[in-house]
């Protein structure tokens, strides 16, 4: 099968801080891969391995696209001028245009993001392909695409037709940092830059009227002598009715 793995290299949303006015401070956010991306990559290789296929990398935005190349992907494409968007369908439309640009593709594997839970499913919708998301893994058996997931206390294996989109939700951090040899190999591997104009997409976002803190009460935090703080917490929990 011809497998495309979609990944990102972007500021880590869990490092973002929210200021008192609700605006977001990204200054301390490090660049990372999507947290589900290592698991998605593993699934992409498993699907390809089961079918003598190949894995193509696809990323958007102006981040470092070599993440997948250093992890065994032979060729990658990057839509470097794609903006960061709130509208997951707009992000998905860029990804879908890039997938079409790559020609015949059997499976798109993508991290099933919590932050942008609409990207994988809108990508499938845009391509008009069947999809499963929230998967723990995927592979090919006898030339057919199979995916594993947990549903209602059971571990299920589901058979999918191709072409299809599969969204992988990582259960743990399975990333393996590449060694020097792999980093050097990555530099020689072809990375093709695509532009929005080339793909014929012009994404836009809905108008933002601004951000505000939700009206939840902040934590009551006790500090000081252990015996005193312990008594304060126990009293607070009793007044909440949980003790």
């Amino acid at each position: 099968m011809r497998v495309v793995v979609v990944y990102k290299w972007a500021r880590n949303p869990t490092d973002a801080l929210v200021r008192s006015d609700g605006s977001i401070d990204w200054r301390n956010a490090r660049m990372t891969a999507g947290e589900d991306d290592p698991a998605a990559l593993a699934a992409a290789f498993a699907i390809a391995a089961g079918s003598d296929g190949e894995v193509l990398g696809l990323t958007i935005g102006d981040g470092d696209a070599s993440w997948a190349l250093a992890r065994g992907v032979e060729r990658a494409w990057s839509v470097a001028d794609a903006p960061s968007l709130v509208d997951n369908a707009a992000t998905a439309a860029i990804l879908a245009a890039a997938v079409r640009h790559l020609g015949e593709v059997d499976v798109v594997v993508i991290g099933d993001s919590r932050q942008d839970a609409g990207v994988p499913v809108a990508l499938a919708g845009e391509l008009g392909w069947p999809a499963l998301v929230g998967l723990t893994s995927a592979t090919t058996v006898d030339g057919r695409l199979q995916a594993a997931r947990k549903v209602g206390g059971a571990a299920q294996t589901v058979l999918l037709p191709t072409p299809a989109v599969v969204g992988i939700a990582a259960e743990a951090d399975v990333d393996r940092a590449p060694g020097m040899k792999e980093l050097l190999a990555a530099r020689k591997r072809p990375l093709t830059r695509l532009s929005l104009a080339e793909l014929g997409v012009a994404p836009d976002d809905p108008e933002s009227l601004g951000c505000a803190k939700p009206d939840s009460t902040p934590a009551r935090v006790f500090a000081g002598e252990p015996a005193e703080t312990a008594a304060q917490l126990v009293a607070a929990l009793r007044s909440e009715g949980v003790l």
């Binding site: 707009a90 942008d116 839970a117 809108a122 499938a124 919708g125 845009e126 998301v133």
Partner: peptide, 17 residues
């Protein structure tokens, strides 16, 4: 969510998470 994505794609709707 998969159903939502299918509908959104077909209708060219925005998708806000």
């Amino acid at each position: 969510r998969v159903l939502l994505g299918a509908v959104a794609g077909r209708m060219h709707a925005r998708l806000v998470p």
